[in-house]
Design a protein around this nucleic acid. Structure first.
Lengths: 204, 204
DNA sequence: AATTGTGAATTGATTCACAGCT
DNA sequence: AGCTGTGAATCAATTCACAATT
């Protein structure tokens, strides 16, 4: 597939459409127009249609899209039709919070282990916390491809190097720093302070 | 100021530059070239320069930028030269985690109160948790302009309406839903599941 | 009649190339 | 000589306008 020339933003929006479709399916809606779905997703109808046609033609003219079918297609495109194992590195405040939050499970991700330099057992968490030194081995034996990074800035790059070396291909980074990774590794960064800071520009 | 035609992404990057500058200042660096700063921020030097010139001319040709001065200028542009009060609504897993995380404080934000439909006192948090019903009054009396929203999807829009009505102008939204707000209100959404889902497209 | 799919047009962001300072 | 500031050129994303299909 020519993944290379599909805008990254389109792929990002696919995930959003997927969530909206899930909601429609819950409500037993079986067909939806680009107009309706776009509105739910907060985009323009033409943009939705263009995004979808990067991957094929899935609609019926005069009618709209079949919800069930579209869900399936997007699942396949995003490559997450089966449960994807994820590890979390850095079980401090933010890290253990995310573990407890658990909003990932129903979206097809399972955090199967967490790692920390100083692992303390955390009651009621339901997943094991190991020493970071055991991480590379764990990644290899469990063929883990995705990681959530919630270590402090100072350790972020070093941990990243280890993860990448062991086979991690995608990182959701919460450390407020730019990670240096090889081309085949993808990083999505979420910097909470930057998000807030950015907002403050817009208040008068 | 003609805020309207400055790309939102430039403003976003300003926050990133600010963090890099802070690090340089800690290390007692007093002058930095666009090349060095851009590298630290993960962008191209020309982009950094263009971003800055939306707001004025701050560099010295042949030399670079004065770190101290630039920090000050960006602070002013982002309108956060003084501590900005913020409230957090929805003290569930993610919400109380963010409160504990506290990565905001040093960036000039102070979470001064949290609200929840069922407020339980949370030990060691250092800030009060009130019932959501008291929120509008609190926003008004304390002139709060910014809010972090961590309620479940179902309640998000209703709470948002109340917040906006009471005077909130910027929202950092963690609920996985599109918020409908008037034009003068800005929303930054962070959808953790979408971020993960998006990444899974890139692993082979 | 309704709605998708898409080439063309437009708008927006990034990068280039070099003039202008220090 | 070195580095910023910026108009022009390029590249990318969005939106339009309408032909194609059911």
């Amino acid at each position: 597939m020519h993944r290379i020339d599909i805008p990254r933003k389109s792929i990002y929006r696919l995930s959003i459409y997927q969530r909206c479709l899930a909601k429609l399916r819950e409500n037993s809606v079986d067909t939806v127009s680009s107009e309706a779905l776009a509105k739910a997703a907060g985009v323009k109808p033409t943009q939705l249609r263009k995004d979808l046609t990067y991957f094929g033609q899935f609609g019926t003219r005069g009618l709209g899209y079949n919800v069930e079918a579209l869900v399936k297609i997007i699942s396949e495109v995003l490559g997450h039709n089966r449960l994807q194992p994820v590890i979390l590195v850095g079980a401090g405040n933010l890290g253990s919070a995310l573990l407890r939050y658990g909003g990932f499970r129903k979206e097809g991700f399972e955090v199967i282990a967490a790692f920390d330099l100083a692992p303390r057992p955390q009651p009621g968490l339901g997943i094991p916390i190991y020493a970071t030194s055991e991480m590379p081995q764990f990644i290899r034996t469990n063929q883990v491809k995705m990681a959530i990074l919630t270590v402090p800035t100072s350790g972020a790059q070093a941990v990243t190097n280890q993860m990448v070396e062991a086979g991690i291909q995608a990182i959701l980074n919460f450390s407020p720093t730019i990670l240096d990774v090889p081309d085949h590794v993808v990083v999505n960064s979420v910097d909470l302070a930057v998000e807030l800071e950015n907002l403050s520009y817009f208040i008068r």
